[in-house]
Design a protein around this nucleic acid. Structure first.
Lengths: 116, 116
DNA sequence: CGGTATCCGCGTCGATACTG
DNA sequence: CAGTATCGACGCGGATACCG
């Protein structure tokens, strides 16, 4: 029943890419993988991201239970973001793809520079 | 130098997601993984895709040397698409992510149905 | 059969300004 | 510091019609 397994595989892939597909998501994921960070730290670490997109992606990842958000209401405000266990497994699942990308990155770039 | 390796890893991930991020790309990839197919077969196999997107994604994958295009000019016209060796390695790299998606798909869907 | 060309809606992304 | 609100540009993706 290889055919049935394909569909499952592909739909799993779709789901995963949906989680990770946003422009800054993998970057957020990886950065958070380094350890717990506050909102401001995250923003500085991901230099170039707008607050809007950072919040938006953070909320989505939070909803998907990939990141954990812990707010400390007070003065000054302090919110800490960290990876959940599920987030950790996602990073592991991403590793082979990251390695593949590493191995082919330069070739891809030159191909696109030449023809695209 | 974990910090340097992170950047490499992330940029590799970005490159990979760029290759595979289009709406139908993984599906095309997987379908072609089953074996060589003609344009029409591919279109029927990926029921619902418009010709425009199929061609567009096919061209991009071809440019990235993920798929191979072989045209037989004649009557009737016949064009066959197949996976390259690189395409094969990409599918392998995608497998853990697909498994992860499978394992979490239902949870993700219910989370999104509830809150999103 | 295997494309190409064109139009258009919609969601994504960025910039900017404002709030508790 | 950690957001929220709003606006506008842009590109993806779908539908349709046409070409070799």
């Amino acid at each position: 029943m290889a055919t049935r397994r394909c569909q499952v595989f592909v739909s799993g892939l779709d789901a995963a890419i949906d989680v990770v597909g946003g422009k800054w998501k993998v970057l957020i994921l990886w950065t958070l993988g380094q350890g717990t960070m506050r909102f401001g730290e995250l923003k500085r670490a991901l230099d170039g991201v707008s607050e809007k997109m950072l919040i938006q992606h953070l909320r989505e990842l939070e909803q998907d239970e990939i990141v954990h958000r812990e707010a400390h209401h007070g003065v000054p405000p302090k919110v800490e973001y960290s990876l959940t266990d599920v987030g950790g497994t996602l990073i592991e699942a991403l590793r082979p793809l990251g390695d593949w990308g590493c191995a082919h990155k330069e070739r891809l770039e030159s191909l696109r520079a030449a023809e695209g």
